[in-house]
Design a protein around this nucleic acid. Sequence first.
RNA 1: GGCGGCGUAGCUCAGCGGUAGAGCAGGCGGCUCAUAAUCGCCGGGUCACAGGUUCGAAUCCUGUCGCCGCCA
Length: 592
Amino acid sequence: MSDERLNILVTTAWPYCNGDLHIGHIAGAYLGADIFARYQRLRGHNVLMISGSDTHGTPITVRAEEEGITPREVVDRYHPRIIRLWQELGISFDLYTETDTENHWRVSQDFFLTHLQKGYIYKDTMRQWFCLTDQQFLADRYVEGTCPYCGFPEARGDQCDNCGRILDAIELKSPRCRICGGTALEIRDTEHFFLDLAKLNAPLLAWIQEDKEHWRPKVLNYTRAQLESGELRGRPITRDIAWGITVPVSGYEHKRIYVWYEAVIGYYSATLEWSEITGQPEAWKQWWQDPAARTYYFIGKDNIPFHTIIWPGMLIGYGGLNLPYDVPANEYLNVEGRQLSKSRRWVIEVLDVLERYDPDPWRYTLTAIMPETADVNFTWEEFVRRNNDELVATWGNLAHRVLSFTYKHFDGTVPRPGPLDDQDQALLEASAEAFDKVGRLIDAVQLRAALREVRTLAEQANKYLNEKEPWKQIKHDRDAAATTMYVALQVVDRLKVLFAPFLPFSSQRLHEYLGYEGNIMGRQWTEEIQETQKRHLVLRYDGSDIPIRWEPGTLPPGQKLRPPQPLFRKLDPAVAEEEVERMLRQAEQVEA
RNA sequence: GGCGGCGUAGCUCAGCGGUAGAGCAGGCGGCUCAUAAUCGCCGGGUCACAGGUUCGAAUCCUGUCGCCGCCA
């Protein structure tokens, strides 16, 4: 690990702001990003972690129609809830914003105009359904009809829910308008703008062939296969809908920019917004123009092509901005053997479970089973087991036995050690080496393995105590017991740091029990940002006062401890069954 | 139909060219500081199947079977 200070941009997929987030979202993108960002901050790198709510696109308008409210009202309901989730789970975005801001509109329109002017956008005509009653074109999701392949009468314009085929809306038989329910539709020509991906194929291919050894094989193989096929086609980037960013071209103001084009620009626009808010208008250049800067995109596997082909292509077309350094895409998290599904109500919503459980057990379990290389299956039984047998038994108990023993026998003070024997030194060395080992794994975004490595050190420390038996030493050789507890306390103090990116809440408490002052988690707060016309809520973070670093420190002898409490609670194994039943009841309500 | 992934101990999974590993579950033992936590030991696998490459394959290649994605 070099000591060079890097500019590191950590970003995550922008969640659609049409509902609450579930543990699949967290395990897929946000938790990994947070662990990575917290670690890199402790290393002393110049980290900026940003994201925001995706407020546009049909998922939002469909939701609004279902409830008879405006899209903006949908956003205003869920955006603050998503922000509250980040706070409760400790996801440390330096800025979490949204896409319906003047800043994001301006930056997106600038991208559009720049692409247009540089020849990466062209105009073409498409054939689309037009509703004679509403006098407007209908985007895919606004037409329903009979599937031309399987005859299913309720097929949507983009896909048939019965046979699963991807459809072109104009293929539908007996189409109906979803807005007015009428059938007075006809196919008309409509003009749209297209991103010329074919033109970007060659430069993308050149980019993907250099310095990508650190990419996950699956992400790299998939991307290479797409680019080497040389079959990238133009994609429409405008739509005939009424919600979204307007097309900044005279004569086309009634059309909107397609959400897939505009949302990814948020990675850049949010960095500009952060620079603006913090009064450092040039600061964004550290991450977007420094050639040594690294940008990481934490996403789910469904998003891979947007981040390894389309967004890099857009950046190439725009010019002058850094391309992704890594796209550590995760696979899916299933629950109790079934795929998570909002519509079938098969979900574990994070805000909901945080009412019954602490955040760190979730962070622990979801990291331990993070779907880094394959889909994984979450079960409540495993959640309870990981909590009780690993988090509580191995780590929480280690911290507690060391703290409470010291507190009782050494007057609540870190004892002064005598000479260290081989065993003492071996454990201290192992705890120092752990920073290097775990650090390498996090740098490579292998978080499961990194967490396992930290847990191994906790196991070594438990073993050390069993061999030293300080409860016997204290009876006949107080100095020997003092040395043992000194060594154990050093290791617990270091484990506090090693666990901090994964388990920030409990590391903070341990920090206090160990007698230290200060906040090692950083501070999160919300803020209303007023632009010329619009107003929006953002989440911010400040970790500049964090008093620990990613290195083996020394807990000073003589430091006064605070009265210790257990770090984690054991869970009654019965909760696993109760939670599964709760989920089954929820899912059945939908089917009924 | 095309592309890709997976199939390793009862369970969940790691290993991905050099004498089969971890955690949990099961059995036995040590300890009693600690949230009946901890530590040690034991049993248990023809690494889906069949060929091939190699001095040597769970690990590379080919095929078969079984699951699962993505695309058409």
